[in-house]
Design a protein around this nucleic acid. Structure first.
Lengths: 109, 109
DNA sequence: ATTCTTTATCGTAATATTGCAATATTAAAA
DNA sequence: TTTTAATATTGCAATATTACGATAAAGAAT
């Protein structure tokens, strides 16, 4: 055991879980916030912003990229990371949908 | 190593990470969706809804409860779980804030 | 009082995540 | 072409997560 039983859940459930799992680390939240704040794309100075070693940051960037939250484009020998607009908006909708589907009136406790 | 370096991040970042981490499993997404759908509180038939053993479901419920997403009230020898309205709305705002703070115009790639 | 039902906890195995030092890779710069 | 700079990858140790069988706990039903 130890592996998540993804096969038994819907693709929507797995996607939501994938998204939130990718966001489920303070460093990755910090990266997203930073990419949003500095309106231009930032390259490797994300490393300077974080209290983590370069390989660790690289790993977190990879996970955010795998989830589709960010994308990186090569720029010389540096790499320019930024929010991936398309998936970002899609995820925004999915989350709004989930959180919006709950109406507090219909709660018995 | 292996432990997250929470001390070096802001409490907002840690809270967002805590929330999304708690949601970052298809079973826990399924539980939330189910609690939203059946407008009354459900007790242990969450177990029947999921393709997981009872102790595993209990563990997932505990994590959702720790994150403040749900709460359980004792009802006889059963326990009635439901969305925790207050924290749910707070988390909704926090997430809307994060996802709303990104404007796609200000992206260079 | 005993049994049944419901949920939680314990113990444990399998796997995943986190973090970093060392090293590889790739392209600019000298 | 060597050096330098920026990222990625590898390998590994520490820790966390996922899952479940066995068992405990607590109240309902008999």
């Amino acid at each position: 055991m130890g592996a998540t039983k993804t096969d038994f859940f819907t693709s929507e459930q797995n996607e939501l879980a994938m998204l939130t799992k990718a966001m489920g680390h303070p460093a990755r939240i910090a990266i997203l916030q930073h990419l949003i704040k500095v309106k231009a794309c930032v390259c490797g100075d994300i490393v300077d912003e974080l209290p983590l070693a370069q390989p660790t940051v690289s790993q977190h960037l990879k996970e955010l990229k795998n989830a589709g939250l960010i994308k990186g484009t090569i720029e010389g020998n540096a790499i320019c990371y930024c929010i991936d607009t398309d998936t970002w908006n899609r995820y925004k909708n999915i989350l709004e949908n989930l959180f919006g589907s709950y109406k507090s009136e219909s709660n018995c406790c």
